[in-house]
Amino acid sequence: MSTPIKILIVEDEMIIAANISLQLTTLGYDIIGIVPRAEEAITCVKHDLPDIVLMDINLKGDLDGIDTVKRIQKEHEIAVIYLTANADETNFNRAKSTHPHAFISKPFKKLDLQRAIELTVDRLQQENNDNVEISSSVAESSPFMLSDCIFVRHNDKMVKVHINDIFYIEAERNYCRIYSKGKEYLLVITLKDMDEKLPNKHFLRVHRSFIVNLSQIDEIATSHIVIAKKAIPVSKTLKEELLKRLQTI
């Protein structure tokens, strides 16, 4: 990336935060802010979107670091590196559910932080390169939509997939995987673009990683739905829309 990587530090121990900032500034990174609370972190992200968030898990207040990341991820895709003095199994599993780029236990050495940042930057650069490659090929690979079916590229052919046969669609970074009756199809398209192309009558995005065929839902639980024996998470903000849509089909 040609411009400096922008990093937001969310850490309520200000001596630690200042030391991290000094080290990363010396290495050429752009520290856009140091904040101690979840609410300030969310506001900072809205005003100046960072490339990487260094997030202390054990923040004081109503939201800890993991909850804060979940709030941020509802609107933004940002690389996250967790910092924590409490690396127990529960916190680790909660943190893992947000797909962080790294996880550093306190106290950590300067080299541990430096390497975690460098590996994260490498991943961001690779994802950026993938986006460039995808944008050049997406025209020929994009699914072609009709009212009752879509045509998708599969083994160098355009294959017809009936709308009614699709169970759900899952995001895989910059790709989408369609799960249908008896077959799976990997498409070179983001879930956001796929959502814009699909007919609203049949499909609804229920989570940042999932679009579902409403007619294929077998069960509805508090935080997930079940389709073809697969438990699919449902975002709290989309649960009401899901229930509303189910009443009309």
Rank of each mutant, 00 (worst) to 15 (best):
P4T: 08
L8I: 04
V10L: 05
E11M: 08
M14V: 11
I15Q: 11
S21R: 10
Q23N: 11
L24F: 03
T25Q: 15
L27E: 12
L27P: 03
L27Q: 14
G33E: 06
R37K: 13
A41E: 06
A41I: 00
T43E: 11
V45F: 07
V45E: 02
I52G: 08
M55F: 06
D56H: 07
D56E: 10
D62H: 12
L63G: 00
V69T: 09
R71D: 09
Q73L: 12
E77H: 15
A79W: 04
V80F: 09
I81M: 00
Y82I: 00
A85D: 11
A87P: 13
A95C: 01
K96C: 02
T98P: 01
H101V: 06
A102S: 14
S105Y: 08
K106E: 06
K106F: 08
K106A: 07
P107F: 08
F108M: 00
K110A: 13
K110G: 13
L111A: 13
L111Y: 14
D112F: 07
L113W: 00
Q114M: 11
R115L: 15
E118I: 07
L119N: 13
V121K: 11
D122C: 12
L124V: 06
L124G: 04
Q126W: 04
D130G: 04
V132M: 12
E133L: 15
E133W: 14
I134S: 12
S137L: 15
S137V: 12
V138R: 09
V138A: 04
A139I: 07
E140S: 12
S141T: 11
C149Y: 14
I150A: 02
V152M: 05
V152D: 01
H154E: 01
N155R: 14
V159H: 00
V161S: 01
H162T: 02
H162M: 10
I163V: 10
I163R: 03
D165S: 08
F167A: 02
A171I: 01
C176W: 02
C176R: 03
I178P: 00
Y179I: 09
Y179G: 08
S180G: 11
S180F: 00
G182P: 01
K183P: 07
K183F: 04
L187S: 05
V188Q: 12
L191F: 08
K192L: 04
D195V: 08
D195F: 10
K197Q: 11
L198F: 07
N200D: 14
H202G: 10
F203L: 01
R205I: 05
V206M: 05
R208L: 01
R208C: 04
R208Y: 05
F210S: 03
I211W: 05
I211G: 07
L214Y: 09
S215G: 13
Q216W: 01
D218N: 15
I220M: 14
A221I: 07
T222Q: 14
V226N: 07
V226P: 04
A228M: 10
K230N: 15
A231C: 14
K239G: 01
K239V: 02
L242I: 09
L246K: 09
T248D: 13
T248N: 15
T248H: 15
